[in-house]
């Protein structure tokens, strides 16, 4: 443990470097996934192929993409841009499906009411579709945040500094404390960012009073005996004031 005490400034600088890679990657994936998810939600012809392609993208190992993407897009392999672009690809792969579900979950009668009030498609998107889809979208964003923070560490094997550097350096020099410090810091960062997402979700969707966000991501099954939860009922639960 003396290693930890002697290397606090190194850990702090790697922590900061890690955040500076993870945050832009998450922001980029949200910015790309929302329009794509909206397209998939609006057009059944785009939906099938798009969801297929993002599903395939997600299957590709990140290490392989870190090596291939730079030569395809002319990026510096050991630069931040490479890591951010590759991780954004994964983020989009996870998010597009969730965002599509999120837009699907907006109740049709609310949309019809907005149309009847004379909202343009553009105005309806910003003031009805997008806000009402947020509870489901945020669940997906939380998954992306946690998995991106974990994946940033892989960049360390090609030489990009992050908390993952503690793994490669600790492994090469045989310092267990360094590897453990990296694990603890990465998990803590992921938990902290996840907590911030929950907080942001509450602030963005104040009408969902209860803390039970509709969790439709991952393998979380419905409770036994409950009615099958359709997207519509899930959202109504959350949106009734």
């Amino acid at each position: 443990m003396t290693w930890v005490g002697n290397n606090l400034s190194l850990m702090a600088s790697l922590f900061l470097a890690h955040v500076m890679l993870a945050l832009p990657a998450v922001a980029l994936s949200v910015a790309v996934a929302i329009p794509l998810g909206w397209l998939a939600h609006r057009s059944p012809t785009i939906r099938g192929p798009l969801l297929q392609v993002v599903g395939l993208l997600y299957a590709i190992p990140s290490l392989a993409l870190f090596l291939i993407v730079p030569s395809l897009f002319g990026l510096e392999m050991r630069g931040s841009a490479n890591i951010i672009v590759v991780l954004a690809i994964y983020g989009v792969a996870i998010l597009v499906r969730t965002v599509t579900d999120a837009f699907d979950s907006v109740p049709a009668d609310v949309l019809q009411a907005a149309d009847a009030c004379g909202y343009s498609l553009w105005r309806r998107f910003w003031s009805v579709d997008l806000p009402l889809s947020l509870p489901v979208t945020m669940a997906g964003v939380r998954v992306v945040v946690v998995s991106t923070i974990s994946l940033v560490t892989v960049g360390s094997v090609i030489g990009v500094r992050s908390l993952g550097t503690l793994f490669t350096d600790g492994f090469q020099r045989g310092i267990v404390a360094e590897v453990v410090a990296g694990l603890v810091l990465t998990v803590l960062l992921a938990l902290a960012m996840d907590g911030l997402c929950v907080l942001a979700g509450h602030m963005l969707t104040p009408w969902t009073k209860s803390s039970r966000l509709p969790r439709r991501v991952g393998f979380i099954g419905r409770s036994r005996g409950a009615l099958p939860a359709t997207p519509v009922t899930t959202n109504e639960e959350g949106s009734v004031p």
């Binding site: 560490t153 360390s156 492994f171 267990v176 590897v179 990296g182 694990l183 990465t186 998990v187």
Partner: peptide
């Protein structure tokens, strides 16, 4: 229907735990 939390917890932990960290830790050990 018992111990469902175990499933959610293990999925969450697997997502947050960096693979490379686990590999290098096991490698050192």
């Amino acid at each position: 229907g018992r111990a469902r939390a175990l499933v959610t917890l293990s999925s969450g932990a697997a997502r947050a735990l960096p693979t490379l960290g686990l590999l290098t830790l096991f490698g050192l050990a």
